[in-house]
Nucleic acid binder design. Sequence first.
DNA 1: CCCCATACTGGAAGCGCTTGCACTCAGGAC
DNA 2: GTCCTGAGTGCAAGCGCTTCCAGTATGGGG
Lengths: 340, 340
Amino acid sequence: MTSLDDVAKAAGVSAATVSRALSGRGNVSTSTRAKILKVAAELDYVASSAASSLASGRMRNLGVIMPELHRWFFNTVLTGISDEATSAGYDVTLYNVTGDPEVRREIFSAFLRRRRVDAVVVVALELSEWEELELKRLGIPVVIIGGTSGTLPGVAIDDLAITELAAAHLLDLGHEVLGFIGGAERFDADYKVPSQRREGFDQALRRRGLQTDPALIGEADFTIPGGFHAARQLLGMPGTGMTGLVAASDEMAIGAVLAARELGIRVPEDLSVVGIDGHELGGLFELTTVDQHAQSQGSTAAKLILATVESGGTHPENMDLSFDLLVRRSTAKAPGALPV
Amino acid sequence: MTSLDDVAKAAGVSAATVSRALSGRGNVSTSTRAKILKVAAELDYVASSAASSLASGRMRNLGVIMPELHRWFFNTVLTGISDEATSAGYDVTLYNVTGDPEVRREIFSAFLRRRRVDAVVVVALELSEWEELELKRLGIPVVIIGGTSGTLPGVAIDDLAITELAAAHLLDLGHEVLGFIGGAERFDADYKVPSQRREGFDQALRRRGLQTDPALIGEADFTIPGGFHAARQLLGMPGTGMTGLVAASDEMAIGAVLAARELGIRVPEDLSVVGIDGHELGGLFELTTVDQHAQSQGSTAAKLILATVESGGTHPENMDLSFDLLVRRSTAKAPGALPV
DNA sequence: CCCCATACTGGAAGCGCTTGCACTCAGGAC
DNA sequence: GTCCTGAGTGCAAGCGCTTCCAGTATGGGG
């Protein structure tokens, strides 16, 4: 293993100068730097991260805490974070907080405290008070994506507004009896997005002087099968007059489309379905959705927090992210509605 | 930040003894250890990973190299690895090798060489000769999941056999004209699984004295939309007599089921479809599949390589993983076939 | 011509652990 | 009672970098 000293000797300078030349901190003459760079390349030198970290306190490592990896939102955000971190020269250490509370506790009380990361991004995790405290105690920048925290900075879409937009799209098309499939408390207990989205739906109706019909609210776990079962139940009820359905995630919306097909209900002729996410499968199902640009949420958060780290800051700004209605073919004018 | 010395002072022993007590290496009397543990807990001491790594050469960190995170196989394997690593007290550092060759090169030539990880698991990546060399040069254990390497140890299913099993299931049901949807060279160029699976399909037919009909081979990229389009084309051809379809992944199989539905082809009455994977969505589509236990591939590989690390070994054993036929309702006896 | 920034560079002191070595002290074998 | 063994402990030397500080040129200003 070639070390800093090897490079220093080979280049005929001191270790200090090599360090300065390679890290770019401090002054080194152009010619000396050039020679050091050349020698380092020849010797194929790569600095030991442990030594460098110990001496400098900088880890060049970004921690990411996630509750799961299967659902589209999570792995998409992670991809965004990873790409951004890599291009900034940072490693990413993944802490997959499973359902096991022991493990979860352990991650906050031990893993994170080894000071292996310069910053951490928390994805869609509702943190307990104790967990927020632990995070703050780390003394490093933290940013939350798609979750909420009273005291930690976050990068997020406005879940209420995004759902209101989805519902408003249906209302604009003349639909008056809308159903909704969202989360239930029994799923995702530590994740507030579901209730926000539900609230957005209600608000959209309220704004038009309509009222939410509790019978048309389905509950599911944000997955395709979940949406399928919830939709089948909703669509199976006779005489509801429902012509539009808002799903709080694209996966549930896709499940709903599948359920409609199974029941012989045509989309969009008989039922308009709109989702939220911008899931990559949306295209296949011609799903109208509100794209929340998940990958860019990841890269934005990473960029933000890495900038904070590099600038020696500790508290990045909060940031509201954009979303766009993406109209495809799963939504259409309500039957009998007046032309828009 | 409380340090080892703080604990040592508070416990009235030397730093060396604290280190031994906390790490479990070397002899410490039961009473001394108990006191140290108590003091450490009180002071809320957590060792600095950088210092510990620098001094010991151990990182307690497992590197994972993956080409993507979206597809089910990858995030499922990653979940398995992460769970296992966490419970062994290891962090996992994720290297998401994107399509960009620059980035890929950088990961092998710089990121991995910082010696931040004790071992690395490579997931479904066909490595170039140079990359294998770089990996070996790291001097740490490496294991490959779902890829192939002449010289690096791997944990994998037999892709040929798993596909043969899927096809044999259809043949056993009396189907004689089978289609296949697999990978194409233009997708996944650096990933040999597709060709292995194709070969397994051919072999199953050959064993029964049948021949692969090139017209019934569809090409796709292992995703649902890919499978959908390939199947639509296959199923749209008139007069093929095809009654069974093998897809090289569950996602493609699901796409095929959707395509069949769209074309008014009933599954399984008119067409039996079998996939490979054990994808979580399989249940919703009643998909018969061969489960390759992806999550346990991840945990098995992690367990294997961490054991190798802890034992000071360098080269874990190769390991062949099991798979099971999981019969659901997407496959049935061929129309007019004799009772089995 | 002298003085003093300014630009470079090297020396050396850590960063916070781990571990080889030396030492003490018992207890068991003779 | 003597010798040996091994458990238990502390000392101190690193691990391979970073960075503060001091020292040496160099060049411009006065």
